[in-house]
Design a protein around this nucleic acid. Structure first.
Lengths: 212, 212
DNA sequence: GTTAGCATGTAAGGAGTTACATGATTTT
DNA sequence: AAAATCATGTAACTCCTTACATGCTAAC
């Protein structure tokens, strides 16, 4: 009974399925996929790659002549084996409770493009139920203890609650989109739909500062 | 050089400073304070209490006659010692970079009522800078890789970015409130101010379903 | 009389981190 | 020549989890 399901392995396999990469590049991509942009350490990455290679899911081939722009050292480029692809598909088609837990959901969602529509839907709905359950229990203990709480604790709770509520609305929009119901919700929030038709306005990823 | 700063110990000390409690009750309170309402396990709690007692910061006194409503077993009620109070004050008055990291910020914020105004401000501003730095680096890699990303990955990034942006606005409101500038921001978002003047409307913690 | 909640613990282990170690290449 | 970035790895450690173990009390 695996405790934590290991979020790193699926993430690596999923990224390598898109294109072969060496460890250093993999880490950068991983930081974007792994949720809340944490900086993954090499102390986790390389042993993990080794383990995946030991189990025959990936192979690392030495890439000597591939001088793109910068740096030429050993540069071991990893890619999926046939078994690795098979294993990944198996992982991506699973839609058990683990898939919509906090630690795993982001990674599963990141590879939705490689996931079939039914599994996608089951994961999104599972996650939604998970979050609404959490809201329920949370609201109960909130109601029970709010008298005893000072204003800061109260504000922390309120903010946490609001974030989960927002997450649920995000999932609602995603589920709507999956269903093909592309109608923009007329009343309510600012954005018409969540799914990636256009990312402008919120992110403003335009200005390239070139610092650091 | 402590790696993770241990979020449990300050949380326990902070709660015990408000009122003495036994382990089981402590856990429930802890789940609300610890951020993202994770369920802390007893396997973490009790050894931690033991460690705090060993260092003389808390003492556990056996409470036999305290039959409130339910259950009467040993029930070891823990409370802070003089050294414990001193240590807690020292921890709460620190405002180093560790205080505004992801793992620690929630706990520090939860005990702002026991923290002096200057420290509060430094932590809030430190956190704000931390998040805007993150936004910056994030936007850069987002701009670099957005062409290669499928719609799901893109949506995940967009959503993550939006969450951090919202967190920054929340901090802005809190900082405004700390400054005493109680003016409600006229344009923009729905709520006038973030800090806990009133929690109605968003949470609706009113309906007590009594299920489970 | 057995399920559910209260209450306290221990042992083993997992997933990831920091700190360290090394070296090539590019930019300033 | 120095600093930054690219690139790969190991050893020790930490925080926390799961699984197990125990027993009391309340409710159905």
């Amino acid at each position: 009974m695996r405790g934590r399901t290991d979020v790193l392995e699926p993430a690596i396999l999923g990224l390598l399925a898109e294109s072969p990469m060496h460890g250093y590049e993999l880490r950068k991509r991983l930081n974007l996929v792994l949720g809340s942009f944490r900086a993954l350490s090499y102390g986790s990455l390389y042993p993990c790659l080794k383990g995946l290679a030991d189990r025959g899911w990936i192979v690392g081939v030495d890439a000597p002549g591939d001088r793109t722009v910068a740096s030429k050292r050993a540069r071991i480029v990893y890619q999926l084996t046939a078994e690795g692809k098979e294993h990944l598909q198996q992982v991506l088609s699973s839609s058990g409770p683990a898939a919509w837990e906090d630690e795993n959901f982001d990674v599963r969602f990141a590879f939705f493009a490689q996931t079939d529509a039914e599994t996608r839907m089951r994961i999104l709905e599972g996650r939604r139920i998970r979050l609404t359950e959490r809201l329920e229990t949370f609201r109960q203990s909130f109601a029970r203890t709010r008298e005893r709480m000072d204003e800061y604790t109260l504000e922390l709770q309120r903010h946490g609650l609001e974030q989960v509520e927002r997450e649920v609305r995000w999932l609602d929009d995603l589920i709507d989109n999956e269903r093909g119901t592309r109608r923009a919700r007329p009343e309510g929030g600012g954005r018409p739909a969540a799914a990636a038709d256009d990312a402008e306005g919120t992110t403003e990823a335009r200005n390239e500062k070139e610092r650091g």
